[in-house]
Simulated scan of single mutants.
Amino acid sequence: MPLERIFDERDINELLTQNAGGEHGARNAALILSGVCWGLTPLEQSLVSTESVIAPNGQLYRTWVLPSHESYNGKSRELYTEDHLVPFFQKYIDVRLKKEWGTGGHSHQALLPDKPFLLNDNGERYRINTTAKGHRSAKAMHDQLRKMIKNSGLYDATPASYRASFIKLMYESGAKWTDLKGLTGIKDKRTLEGHVRPHERELESILSKIFSRVKMPRSLE
């Protein structure tokens, strides 16, 4: 059974609330939502550029493309920013402008378009490590996501829970396998099935209800 926790709406609100304080609250909200609403991996959160999510005229794209060089598997895919997410991301953009983090451009709300959209506590890109074989890892982003989970007391969750929650909620909301493959970049159906089948805490609830009202025959009492 999968070990990572799947966030529900209550969990997301708790993540947002417990990580909203201080000068990095808006950035933290943007990180949380980029995982659970865009379905980005930690590597993609580290790589996604400003010009991928913000149009030259300054508007957040409602439909946008994560390019191949910013994707975990080297394949581009189409993603969406729904209207209810815009205020969260705009708040983060406003903070970046105030702090002058990656600013100086003449478009994209004055943010430098080719720079990462999501920045660390120092206003810099999250570090990405590359092995001798060319494998990229996003330990710095993993650490940030894990820190926000700890702040919220969701101790059975992992950094993988953000994206896994996106996948499962999309499935439960009616997304087809082809939709899920397109949104996540995961081409193997068996891998997707591992994300959408009942998870541990859900399975316990399901099992507790199966034939829960059966009665002991009097002859066995």
Rank of each mutant, 00 (worst) to 15 (best):
L3M: 07
L3V: 14
R5M: 10
D8H: 11
T17Q: 15
A20Y: 04
G21C: 08
G22W: 13
E23F: 07
G25T: 11
L31Y: 09
I32H: 04
S34C: 09
S34H: 04
G35Q: 01
V36R: 03
T41I: 01
P42N: 07
L43I: 07
S46V: 02
L47I: 05
L47S: 04
V48C: 02
V48E: 00
S49A: 10
E51L: 12
S52R: 00
S52W: 02
V53L: 10
V53N: 06
I54W: 02
I54K: 00
N57A: 11
L60W: 09
L60T: 15
T63Q: 12
V65G: 08
H69V: 10
E70G: 05
G74H: 07
G74K: 04
K75V: 14
K75M: 05
E78I: 13
E78T: 12
Y80F: 15
Y80L: 05
T81Q: 03
T81P: 02
V86M: 07
F89A: 01
Q90M: 10
V95C: 11
G102S: 06
G104A: 10
G104S: 08
G105W: 07
H106Y: 09
H108V: 02
Q109V: 13
L112Y: 04
L112A: 06
L112E: 07
P113L: 12
D114P: 04
D114F: 06
F117K: 03
N122R: 06
G123R: 11
E124V: 15
R127Y: 09
I128K: 11
T130H: 06
T130N: 06
A132T: 11
K133S: 08
G134S: 09
M141I: 10
H142Y: 11
L145C: 01
L145M: 12
M148C: 07
I149H: 04
K150N: 11
N151V: 13
A157F: 01
T158H: 08
A164K: 01
S165D: 12
I167K: 00
I167D: 00
Y171S: 00
S173K: 02
G174H: 05
A175I: 10
G182H: 00
L183W: 06
D188I: 00
K189A: 09
R197S: 08
H199R: 06
R201N: 13
L207T: 13
S208K: 14
K209L: 15
F211Y: 10
V214Y: 09
M216V: 14
